[in-house]
Computed example of a mutant assay.
Amino acid sequence: MRRSRITVAGIALAGLALAGCGAGGGSAHGARTAAATMDTSAIKASHSPVGDILVDGSGRTLYLFTEDGKNTNSMNCDAACMKLWPHMEGKPHAGAGVGANLIGHTKGSGKVQVTYAGHPLYYYAKDRKAGDLKGQGIDKVWYVVNAKGTAVEKAVPAPSSSGGGGYGY
């Protein structure tokens, strides 16, 4: 009998430990989860509450980091930053509303990163699905990008209380 109590207690503790692993939005696990759903086959324009913005092939929002500057090979998002802001990799084609001549690549931190109009592109690990804009305006340096390749510095409007339009929150 004593043995089964220990087993049940051990199983309960293991279950709690595993449940805690999924909650860490800024953890490496959170970044891997986000990375698993990234479709880097395309960059396209998509309508959002802040206007038309760039998204990947699955509709995941793309961001720029104003500290990176433009047309530079030095990215200022270090390894710790990259856990929360994984960069877009691959060789995407231009989708609807996007200029193919604006898609490029830069090599910083040893990896090739996709750029748009000279800006390295990133995902936000806490954006879990197409249409999420949770990274918009963070620290006044992370912004969504429009089809011209400039930061969209508008705040995301609060969802209406009428029940429609949660914007991924």
Rank of each mutant, 00 (worst) to 15 (best):
residue 130 A to S: 15
residue 130 A to K: 11
residue 129 K to R: 15
residue 144 V to E: 12
residue 122 Y to A: 02
residue 129 K to G: 09
residue 139 D to W: 14
residue 116 Y to W: 11
residue 129 K to V: 13
residue 148 K to G: 08
residue 121 L to P: 08
residue 120 P to V: 13
residue 142 W to T: 06
residue 122 Y to V: 13
residue 150 T to I: 10
residue 124 Y to T: 04
residue 125 A to S: 15
residue 123 Y to Q: 09
residue 137 G to H: 02
residue 131 G to T: 08
residue 138 I to K: 14
residue 120 P to R: 07
residue 119 H to V: 02
residue 116 Y to C: 00
residue 150 T to N: 12
residue 151 A to T: 10
residue 146 N to G: 09
residue 131 G to W: 09
residue 133 L to E: 01
residue 146 N to L: 11
residue 149 G to W: 06
residue 146 N to I: 07
residue 121 L to E: 00
residue 130 A to V: 09
residue 152 V to A: 03
residue 144 V to N: 10
residue 126 K to C: 06
residue 138 I to T: 15
residue 140 K to G: 01
residue 116 Y to L: 01
residue 128 R to I: 08
residue 119 H to C: 01
residue 133 L to Q: 03
residue 129 K to I: 08
residue 140 K to H: 14
residue 132 D to A: 11
residue 121 L to Q: 05
residue 140 K to P: 00
residue 150 T to R: 06
residue 115 T to P: 02
residue 150 T to Y: 03
residue 122 Y to K: 03
residue 149 G to Q: 07
residue 141 V to K: 13
residue 144 V to G: 09
residue 135 G to Y: 03
residue 123 Y to A: 05
residue 152 V to K: 02
residue 130 A to R: 11
residue 119 H to N: 13
residue 137 G to D: 03
residue 139 D to K: 15
residue 136 Q to I: 14
residue 120 P to N: 08
residue 137 G to F: 06
residue 153 E to L: 05
residue 125 A to N: 11
residue 127 D to F: 06
residue 117 A to R: 02
residue 135 G to S: 07
residue 150 T to C: 00
residue 138 I to S: 10
residue 123 Y to N: 02
residue 130 A to N: 07
residue 142 W to R: 03
residue 142 W to I: 05
residue 123 Y to C: 03
residue 129 K to M: 03
residue 128 R to A: 09
residue 148 K to F: 02
residue 118 G to F: 14
residue 135 G to Q: 06
residue 137 G to I: 05
residue 134 K to I: 02
residue 147 A to H: 07
residue 124 Y to N: 06
residue 119 H to E: 03
residue 147 A to K: 12
residue 152 V to F: 04
residue 152 V to W: 07
residue 123 Y to T: 06
residue 126 K to D: 14
residue 139 D to Q: 15
residue 151 A to D: 13
residue 126 K to Q: 11
residue 146 N to T: 10
residue 118 G to T: 13
residue 122 Y to P: 11
residue 115 T to C: 12
residue 115 T to W: 10
residue 135 G to D: 04
residue 118 G to H: 10
residue 150 T to W: 01
residue 148 K to R: 15
residue 133 L to R: 04
residue 153 E to C: 01
residue 117 A to C: 02
residue 143 Y to L: 10
residue 144 V to H: 07
residue 129 K to N: 08
residue 119 H to W: 13
residue 153 E to V: 14
residue 116 Y to M: 01
residue 122 Y to W: 07
residue 125 A to C: 12
residue 125 A to Q: 05
residue 125 A to E: 06
residue 148 K to D: 06
residue 145 V to S: 00
residue 149 G to L: 08
residue 118 G to C: 09
residue 128 R to F: 02
residue 124 Y to D: 01
residue 137 G to Y: 01
